[in-house]
């Protein structure tokens, strides 16, 4: 006999409650996406919901924004997109390079140290983002030299580290010391054993961490809002600046594109974490 999680008698009420909650949850989380997607197909200049006529004109406008020079704004959408991608790439690579050895060391160290360090790296998650932005701004302004792109990349690294570390740590969990020792007993130096055995087995966790870092950095707004300059801003900042005075439906079309890419990446992460997917 199958034992259900929910009692069968009176299951009607339970099931109703669960369905109701699920519907509310899905609505709340997907409503913005639905609204933005519908609006991006609107034919009208005025952003009122629901739109009365539909067209692809905003998508055409986005294409034009990307292809034609726009001398009016200091930072064009092309520059912002490039900065965003470069920052996201740097954040992704650096946070992973930091977290793989860190996760290895923590997983092989004693429990207390491991839990303490995990807590330490989780702190950026609990700080209010505005405060974090102010803090990074103060630090950056007090420096005597120009940080360049690192002005935005460093705060992003702080923000993504907990996610990347967690993924790497849980990937390390299943890798026993014995399997490393087996490689060593067969003649591999300790470093070689890590390269041949530990890293391949961590692969899914590493990839999940990489994609998390990419998405979080690419979409980050609050902290970046404090850090951006006239010469250096990201796509979310550009989109905000386009909509702050009046809503520009072209940004909605752009958002839809970003959402599609993000969803694809999230599904990929989900597959990787469940251990089913395999990128290479």
């Amino acid at each position: 006999m199958r034992v259900g999680l929910l009692p069968r008698e009176g299951g009607g009420t339970y099931r109703f409650v669960i369905l109701f909650l699920a519907t509310i949850g899905i609505l709340i989380s997907s409503l913005p996406v639905i609204v933005v997607t519908i609006m991006s197909f609107s034919a009208s200049e005025y952003s009122s919901f629901p739109p009365t006529e539909f067209s692809l004109r905003w998508y055409v406008e986005v294409l034009q924004l990307f292809t034609s020079e726009d001398p009016s704004s200091a930072q064009s959408v092309v520059d912002s997109t490039f900065t965003s991608l470069l920052v996201a790439f740097l954040v992704m690579v650096i946070s992973t390079l930091v977290c793989i050895p860190l996760a290895y060391a923590l997983a092989r160290s004693n429990r207390n140290l491991r839990e303490g360090m995990e807590l330490l790296f989780t702190l950026p998650l609990v700080f209010p983002l505005v405060m974090l932005g102010i803090a990074f701004l103060l630090i950056a302004e007090s420096l005597q030299f120009d940080l360049g792109i690192w002005r935005i990349a460093i705060p992003h690294i702080a923000l993504v580290l907990p996610f990347v570390l967690r993924n790497c740590l849980s990937a390390m969990n299943g890798i026993s010391v014995e399997i490393e020792e087996a490689a060593i007993s067969l003649g591999a130096s300790p470093l070689r054993a890590i390269w041949d055995v530990v890293i391949p087995l961590m692969k899914a966790g590493i990839l999940a961490g990489l994609i998390f870092a990419l998405i979080i950095s690419f979409n980050e707004f609050t902290v970046t809002f404090f850090m951006y300059t006239i010469d250096l801003s990201t796509l979310p900042i550009w989109m905000y600046s386009r909509t702050v005075s009046s809503l520009d439906p072209a940004t909605l079309a752009l958002s839809v594109f970003i959402i599609v890419v993000d969803v694809f990446l999230v599904v990929l992460v989900d597959k990787l974490i469940a251990g089913r997917g395999n990128l290479f």
Partner: peptide, 15 residues
Amino acid sequence: HKRGFGMVFQSLALF
């Protein structure tokens, strides 16, 4: 890794 002893572990530790 330089001893050249073959070892079989309790968990087998196959890759």
